[in-house]
Nucleic acid binder design. Structure first.
Lengths: 119, 119
DNA sequence: TTCAATACTTACCTTTTGGTAAGTGAGGTA
DNA sequence: TACCTCACTTACCAAAAGGTAAGTATTGAA
């Protein structure tokens, strides 16, 4: 298993938050679990178009280790594994909301610029 | 100059915000400019302990291109270049505040855990 | 007996990110 | 003339992040 480096010491809050949220798919995993409550591994894989199984599992493991998500294995065949947000995960999602809104306004700005550029 | 890839298309707001804020030193640059208003290149370099000149300049250029910061050159010898936040940069900093607070709570949690672990 | 479904796991590779260290240019000072 | 400050710039390298594709384990169904 590829090990992780950071997890502190952090020089400020942003630093500490970025450490758990940086990763190509992590904020999308957060979003997906927040809107659906519980998702199976395969459901997440299909929802995050383009993610590789390796990265998905790696991100899920790190987020579990960081206390953001909960992993529940059902001993069935074929296996069933459910992922859901913990309280920390939900609060992180809350904290990300203003950033998401800022990004949404940026998207709209860029959309306008692109439309003007191609006119 | 190393070129950048992303700048859209983005699949959601978080994605769009992360694209401009991801980079080892960017949130620190944001913070530094927000608290001091205006900083020279050398002042930033000294404030961000450990940053290399190459990365500092690269981040500053990208942030300028993204409309987050303003760069003002004074034609003096030795040269003087002032960096400051634009309105977009300030609003991004605002949007990052809840995330920073979440990270601060995480730091405090980790601090407690580390203290317990070493006890 | 072979296959299907699910959730991984592994080896290997490419791309991206960031660091190091040396160099540039312009003009003021010793 | 040589040297200084400052803001870069460049070539080169190392590490981290992420992708591809094949393999594993389990067991019920065909």
């Amino acid at each position: 298993m590829t090990t992780r480096s950071r997890r502190g010491p952090y020089i400020c809050g942003i630093d500490a938050a970025m450490d758990v949220v940086s990763g190509k798919w992590k904020s999308l995993i957060l979003w997906e679990l927040d809107t659906h409550g519980t998702r199976r591994f395969g459901e997440l894989r299909r929802a995050l178009t383009g993610v590789s199984e390796k990265m998905l599992i790696q991100h899920l493991r790190e987020m579990e280790e960081d206390g953001l998500i909960h992993r529940e294995v059902h001993r069935e065949v074929p296996p069933r594994v459910d992922y859901s947000l913990t309280e920390h995960g939900r609060s992180l999602n809350e904290a990300l909301r203003p950033l998401g809104e800022w990004g949404q306004r940026r998207r709209e700005r860029l959309g306008v610029e692109d439309a003007l550029a191609s006119a």
